[in-house]
């Protein structure tokens, strides 16, 4: 079984995210990029499948994502069998500093997967820049494959996979999914494993990122970003200001006022 895990690098949310001068994108210059946390879950679940049934796991990233080499080498250090970095060309030119929109990302990945078919595509159910989780479903549509999202476990079952899909209130059901298929992973059965830096460095020294070029079909997205907005205080939340000690006192005061703490 060949499992392809599309991965993307997103801004580390511990950074203060600034907007570009024209306010149509985020200023990526000083940002640190890290692997999207849901993609880390997808990779872990794929590696668990590899551990149990000997699947081949291929991590795939787009060359334009900042820090993608680091992300792919980390995947190799964790046990992925191969890592592929996709460069794409299109009439419209590359995405520039604004990053690639999810629909276009799906098109690039579909181009790669059409040439290098997978039995199973597992990727994060969402990402910091794709909170509505379009990527797995868009990929499934483009590849014309069955699709399950919000998966919390994927296990092999003789030519198909058994997928547990989660609903609200913790209810889940088990699906039998014919391969090939696309799965959007919410969480793996165990916390993503640690990749020791020595192993990542060894993977880097060994090289081994395969580079693939995909031609992007004419632009599919007709949406244009007019303006981005900074986080706004909405009034639903009260921001406590001051030093840690003052904030703690305020919290205590609130808890006392509501009778949750006595004394």
């Amino acid at each position: 079984m060949r499992i392809v895990v599309p991965m993307r690098a997103v801004p580390d949310l511990v950074e203060e995210i600034e907007l570009t001068a024209d306010e149509t994108g985020i200023d990526r210059e000083y940002l640190t990029f890290v692997l999207s946390e849901w993609d880390a879950q997808a990779l872990e679940e794929a590696l668990l499948l590899k551990d149990s049934s000997g699947a081949e796991v291929v991590a795939v990233g787009l060359a334009d994502d900042p820090e993608i080499d680091q992300v792919l080498y980390t995947a190799l250090a964790k046990g992925a069998d191969a890592a592929v970095k996709i460069t794409y060309s299109s009439a419209a030119g590359s995405s520039g500093s604004a990053g690639l929109r999810t629909a276009d990302r799906a098109a690039v990945l579909a181009g790669y997967l059409a040439a290098q078919p997978a039995d199973l595509v597992m990727t994060g159910v969402q990402a910091a820049d794709d909170l509505d989780g379009q990527l797995p479903s868009a990929l499934a549509v483009l590849l014309d494959l069955p699709h399950v999202s919000v998966a919390v476990s994927v296990e092999e079952a003789a030519g198909s996979v058994t997928v547990r899909q989660e609903f609200a209130a913790g209810i889940s059901h088990e699906l039998q999914v014919q391969l090939p298929a696309v799965i959007g992973v919410q969480s793996a059965r165990q916390a993503p494993r640690y990749a020791p830096i020595t192993r990542i460095r060894q993977a880097m020294q060994a090289g081994g990122l395969r580079e693939v070029t995909v031609t992007l079909p004419p632009a599919r997205s007709t949406l244009i970003v007019r303006r981005m907005h900074r986080p706004e205080e909405t009034g639903h939340a009260e921001m406590l200001a001051g030093s840690a000690g003052e904030v703690a006192d305020q919290i205590l005061g609130l808890l006392r006022a509501r009778g949750l703490v006595k004394g």
Binding site: V14, E16, Y30, I197
Partner: peptide, 17 residues
Amino acid sequence: ALQNLATQGNSFGKSAR
């Protein structure tokens, strides 16, 4: 903590900046 140290150089998971 180790992952934070690898990405931001500190164990607190705060931006290096």
